[in-house]
Design a protein around this nucleic acid. Sequence first.
DNA 1: TTATTATATGAATATCTGTTCATATGTTTA
DNA 2: TAAACATATGAACAGATATTCATATAATAA
Lengths: 125, 125
Amino acid sequence: MAEEKVIGDGDIDQCDFICVHENVVNQVIKVMPKEQQLLDLADFFKIFGDPTRIRILYVLSQSEMCVCDIANLLQMGQSAISHQLRVLKQMRLVKFRREGKTVFYSLADGHIETILAQGMEHISE
Amino acid sequence: MAEEKVIGDGDIDQCDFICVHENVVNQVIKVMPKEQQLLDLADFFKIFGDPTRIRILYVLSQSEMCVCDIANLLQMGQSAISHQLRVLKQMRLVKFRREGKTVFYSLADGHIETILAQGMEHISE
DNA sequence: TTATTATATGAATATCTGTTCATATGTTTA
DNA sequence: TAAACATATGAACAGATATTCATATAATAA
């Protein structure tokens, strides 16, 4: 059983050999999500990669709230909050209900708080 | 007990009233992480917000691997991988050991796979 | 109806980010 | 020592992103 394997000409970088065993390569190919899943997953996490959106999610973890309230609490412009809520809405992290002129937003599910908590756990080490 | 509260002049947007109860506001202030924590948390999740980095993490979830192997597996340039590994290293998501010319990278802890799995769970709905 | 209020949204802009290219660093081999 | 190789890194560039501004939409009140 060969531990190294010569790489063909078409390869993108300068490496002549690969070090990993073939069965590892096969295993990697097996667990690697499909292209679309990867993109979706990255987009999902990207949402949490912005302080403003994280703030919004924390706020909504306590109570449903209208756009204006969120803007006031976070001391930011209504437009900025509205834009971010749209992103959160598109990613199905928040839901909303209209009541007259006011739109109340809330977290789409409890899953989100778990992910926030898990991230917080990791950075607190 | 008042359900609405007038907002002062210094406020950043046009809203005249806030809808949430004062105790909710206080509760929000209580759970909201400190500024630095928020930034750290956003930076942490930002890592997972890129397909290339997610691919690298999935690859490393199967086996430690050298830079060159990762580049070959993902069909990307060595430099691009190296840059991303630096980001992952800075965020302590991967560790590495040197063996001669080769540097082997591996996941820093099992926590990471949990977070990936949780994200994957969410987008599969 | 018009005026007012809450929210949404398109355009513009400044900043950030990922990849590539060229090159430097560090290690091994000849 | 010099040559070869694996990795790291700075600069440049293209593409993405968050906020602001101006304005549109939608609902209510006068």
